[in-house]
């Protein structure tokens, strides 16, 4: 198992593997988000309390849950990179960070646009919103730290340590609605119990959550491939690709 995994730590193999996986992720992402969003916007029944404004849920919840999932992915990759010295994991972590930042921004923005008609205000300083904002700052910190080291091997180490320390924030976001009385409504999807939503509303949401996951995966693969090339600029196979690209 370890031998098999380590063979993918080789830059050229991981680059090619990312290339083969990419079309699958792209197709799944487009299909899932297409179906989920159309279903959610056109066919899901209207919420009896919130009217049609609840349709923001189909991007808000996927973005929010994936912003945490992406952070866990980044921190896991950093951990693997630091402990087992696998550089491909460092590059993966560096590729996820900007995507996570954008997704977190989307979660915050759509939340604000939903909060305005429902709560009468764009923003409240409650636990869920504040901790999600901290998540955005953590992503930005990781990006800034990674950018400020010349030596990218060190940069990945440093950013990785920060990412791992920041994991503390994830359970705070997840359980903030249960721990504090908050304006934010509690989770609508429950894995172990019955969900508090009807099926027609719920299925497009679940489809979109998976779709966002696939989309983040696809963008990560794209960025990962570029990162592999940038970090291996001295290798012959990268130089061959560069000559090909210029002559095109």
């Amino acid at each position: 198992m370890w031998k098999w995994l380590n063979s993918y730590a080789d830059p050229e193999r991981s680059y090619k593997l990312a290339g083969t996986l990419l079309p699958w992720f792209v197709c799944l992402a487009i299909a899932l988000i297409g179906v989920g969003t159309t279903w959610g916007l056109l066919f899901a029944p209207m919420d009896y309390q919130q009217g049609d404004s609840f349709r923001i849920i189909y991007i808000h919840v996927p973005a929010a849950s994936m912003s945490m999932a992406a952070y866990m992915g980044m921190a896991t990759a950093s951990f693997i990179g630091i402990v087992w010295q696998i550089k491909a994991a460092d590059w993966a972590a560096a590729s996820i960070a900007p995507i996570g930042a954008v997704i977190t921004f989307i979660a915050l923005f759509t939340g604000a646009a939903w909060g305005k008609p429902m709560w009468g205000t764009w923003w409240v300083w409650d636990a869920r919103l504040t901790s999600e904002l901290v998540l955005l700052f953590l992503y930005l910190g990781v990006i800034a730290l990674y950018a400020s080291f010349e030596d990218k091997v060190l940069a990945a180490r440093a950013a990785g340590i920060l990412a791992i320390v920041g994991v503390v924030n994830i359970p705070i976001i997840k359980y903030s609605v249960d721990w504090w009385s908050s304006l934010h409504q509690p989770a609508t999807i429950k894995i172990t119990e019955k969900s508090t939503m009807t099926g027609d509303m719920l299925y497009p949401l679940i489809i979109n959550i998976f779709g966002f996951g696939m989309m983040i995966g696809a963008i990560t693969l794209v960025r990962f491939r570029a990162e592999v090339l940038a970090r291996n600029g001295m290798r012959p196979w990268v130089r061959a690709l560069a000559t090909q690209e210029v002559s095109k």
Binding site: A226, A242, T243, E245
Partner: peptide
């Protein structure tokens, strides 16, 4: 766009 940018830089 990053991939192309990186490759032209290397070239």
């Amino acid at each position: 766009r990053r991939k192309r940018k990186v490759l032209t830089e290397i070239a």
